[in-house]
């Protein structure tokens, strides 16, 4: 029987749903908290046919995936994929290289050069950390003066990665018809060569993450959406991925790809067994 190991940090709703899905499918499933892991240069610490990486810590997850790769253990997702998704700069570069529409983006390391880059992008613009999630420290700036304030604060942060200024055009998202005051973007769930589901995220705030209060509603997976999602997923190496997209007057643009997706708020509106699909994919990827 295929033995799937799930490496995780915290038993969130998602991890419990994955555990339950494995039980429903009769898959041998072992949950290993990353707190307890002792990784070794020699194989043995992860005695599984495949590893589903669900660490809430991106850093820990990437190290776990390094060991999986070194020891020939199929991992969901592969280290190279996770690394590409964990850094927005790398994601953007890969999307652009693959010809996937993505917002105009620049990177700078000093306040002055960042301000010059923002002048080129024009205002409003968005300043983001190149790493991080849940829209932490993501700021929309409407003027040079606002940008100076954000950059001044960011420059004092101790982590040097925070001085990698990831600067992006502000995209005017098309909202839902009849809801002019709501911002809307789109999250699509890709599992291998399937785009299994998509939701719209509606929020009165321009940041629409469901972790920040955005409300999910089902979005049909059209052939156009599926095609774009597959191209975007392939750009970072494919696997189990959650893609964030925005609808613009010129079409869809992809601005972020997540490699340890949260899906608790998406199962009910879409009616898709997302954890079940992930477990099925893990079994397919497992060592024979």
């Amino acid at each position: 029987m295929t033995h799937i190991g799930m490496v995780y940090s915290r038993g969130r709703v998602e991890e419990k749903m994955l555990q339950e899905a494995a039980q429903r499918q009769g898959v041998q499933f072992t949950a290993v908290q990353d707190d307890t892991l002792i990784l070794d240069l020699d194989p043995g610490a992860l005695p599984f046919d495949a590893v589903l990486e669900r660490s809430v810590s991106t850093t820990r997850g990437l190290y776990v995936l390094k060991f999986c790769g070194a020891h020939g253990i199929p991992a969901i997702n592969r280290h190279a994929v996770a690394a590409a998704c964990a850094d927005k700069t790398e994601t953007s570069l890969k999307l652009r290289r693959a010809g996937v529409p993505t917002p105009r983006t620049k990177v700078a390391f000093e306040q002055e050069s960042a301000l010059a880059a923002l002048d080129q992008l024009g205002y409003p613009a968005v300043i983001k950390p190149t790493t991080g999630s849940w829209a932490r420290m993501v700021a929309r700036v409407d003027s040079r003066r606002e940008a100076e304030q954000i950059l001044e604060h960011r420059s004092e942060l101790p982590n040097p990665v925070q001085q990698v200024y990831y600067l992006q055009e502000y995209v005017n998202k098309l909202g839902a018809a009849g809801e002019p005051t709501l911002h809307r973007d789109l999250r699509a769930f890709v599992v291998g060569d399937e785009t299994i589901a998509a939701i719209w995220r509606n929020s009165p705030h321009w940041i629409t993450n469901t972790a920040r209060g955005g409300k999910a509603s089902v979005c049909p997976v059209t052939p156009e959406l599926h095609d774009l999602c597959q191209r975007a997923a392939a750009a970072v190496g494919g696997g189990v991925l959650a893609l964030d997209l925005m609808e613009t007057s010129a079409g869809l643009v992809c601005h972020e790809i997540n490699h340890t997706m949260e899906f608790r708020n998406s199962v009910a509106p879409t009616g898709v067994d997302i954890p079940g699909k992930i477990i099925e994919y893990c079994v397919r990827q497992a060592k024979a």
Partner: peptide
């Protein structure tokens, strides 16, 4: 009590 989110936590 659950810990607060760390800087590298996320999706």
């Amino acid at each position: 009590l659950a810990p607060h989110a760390e800087e590298d936590w996320g999706e």
